[in-house]
Nucleic acid binder design. Sequence first.
DNA 1: CGGTGTGAAGTTCTTCACAGCC
DNA 2: GGCTGTGAAGAACTTCACACCG
Lengths: 223, 223
Amino acid sequence: MKISNPSGSGSGSAIPEVVILRLPLYVRILTQLRDEGIEVVSSRELGERLSVTPAQIRKDLSYFGRFGKQGRGYNVNYLVGELRRVLGLDRDWNAAVVGVGRLGRAIISYPGFSPEGFKVVAAFDADPSQVGRQLDVVTVRPMEDLAKAIAEQKIDIGIVAVPAPQAQPVINKLVECGIKAILNYAPVAPQVPGDVRVRNIDPVLGLQTMTYHLKMMKERKGK
Amino acid sequence: MKISNPSGSGSGSAIPEVVILRLPLYVRILTQLRDEGIEVVSSRELGERLSVTPAQIRKDLSYFGRFGKQGRGYNVNYLVGELRRVLGLDRDWNAAVVGVGRLGRAIISYPGFSPEGFKVVAAFDADPSQVGRQLDVVTVRPMEDLAKAIAEQKIDIGIVAVPAPQAQPVINKLVECGIKAILNYAPVAPQVPGDVRVRNIDPVLGLQTMTYHLKMMKERKGK
DNA sequence: CGGTGTGAAGTTCTTCACAGCC
DNA sequence: GGCTGTGAAGAACTTCACACCG
C-alpha cells in the first residue's frame, strides 16, 4: 500500500519537486554573480544571497551531479550552464496566450519573457471583435484555431489570462490540445490531469497569506 | 542546538506555515461554493475541488477550531467567515506601490485587489518627472515622502514594482519604514529580517520550473 | 450511516556532521 | 584550512484510521 512516485510514470531517481522549484532561483543568483564578474562561489555565499542553508544548496545540487571543487566552491559560469541545461533552459520555448484583455495584452508585451527564452508566438480570444487584432508581434486568433496553432507553431506552454469563470474551460481545452505546462493568471484552483503542470500567478493569494501574520503581530502588541 | 519556531518571536501553538498558505485557497473555493448556493460541504467535496486530500483539509482546519458537524460537513457560509477572520480578511488593508512604470501602473489599476479588501492608497517613484502624476485614484509622490505616508495613511503593505537593480534598496527602505509585508514583483530574491514577510510574483520562475518537466517528458519519448 | 477531529504512523524534506579532496 | 558531497539523524508535513457524534 504505497504509491509514492510523484509526477506519474516514474522516470528514475525521484528528485523532490521542491528541489526543482529552487533551481531557477539558483540560476538567477548565479547569473547575477556572473554579471558582477564573480567566478567562484561557495554554498555558504550562495546561501546567504538566497536565505537558504548551505547544506540545502549542496544537497540540491548533488541530485544532478558533482559541480563543485573541494576547498574552493563552484565555478559560477559552469554551474549556471549546467543548471540551465538541467532545467531545459538551453533552448527557447514557445507559448500561447489565451485571453487578450488588459491582462493578456500586458503579458504579450511583457519584456521579461523573451530574454529568458520564452516566446509568446500566438494569442487567442473567444471574442470575435478581438480576433485579427495585432498585438506586439502576434495577431489575435479565434479559439477554434488553438489545436492547429499548437501543433504548427510547436507551442508547449499555455498562458491563461481570461476571467475566472472561463479559466477552467480554457484550461481543459489546452489540455485536450496536448499542452502539458500552463501558466495561469486567473484566480481559480485549476483541475488538471497528473501529467500536466500548472503554476498560478496570483497576487491576491500572496497578500492574503501575509495578512495572517500582520494580524498576529498587531494582536500581540496592543493595537 | 535547536531553533525551530518560525516567524520569529514564538507566539504559541505553532501553526505550520504551509497551512497558512492553503487557507486563502479554501476561502476562495468556499466563496465560490457560496455563490453557487451550496450551503454545506464535506472535506471530501472540498478536497476534490482543490486536488487536496480530505484528511489534510480537516487537519488544517483543526488548527483553528472545530468548524464542522459530524455526519454532515461544514456550513459554507460559517466556515468562510471564520477563515476570513483567521486570516485577517475581515477588514481592509492599505498598500503602497513603489515604482510606477508599466508594471506599477498595471498594479494600481488592477481591479482584483479592491473587492478583496486591499486598497492601493499611495504610489511612489524615484523619477521626479513621474511625481505629481495622477494614476487612478492616487497621485505619485517622491520616495522621500514614503515614511510619512506610511504612518499617516496607515499603510501595512508595500508593493514593489521597480526594475530588478532597484528592488533591494527599495525593500530596505520599506523595511526601515516599518513595513512587515511586501509583495514583490521584481525578479530578485529579496533579503529581509525574519519578522518581515515577502511574497514574490514572478512568472518567469514559474515557467522555468515547468520546463524541467517538459524536457523530461520529451526525453522519455524520443523527440 | 456519513463525516468530523485527532493521536499515531508514515513519508518527505532539511540539517547535521564528517570523510575526502584541493 | 576551506569547502564539497553525502549517509544518517532530525524536523516538518501528510496520511491513516478510528473514536465519537448528529
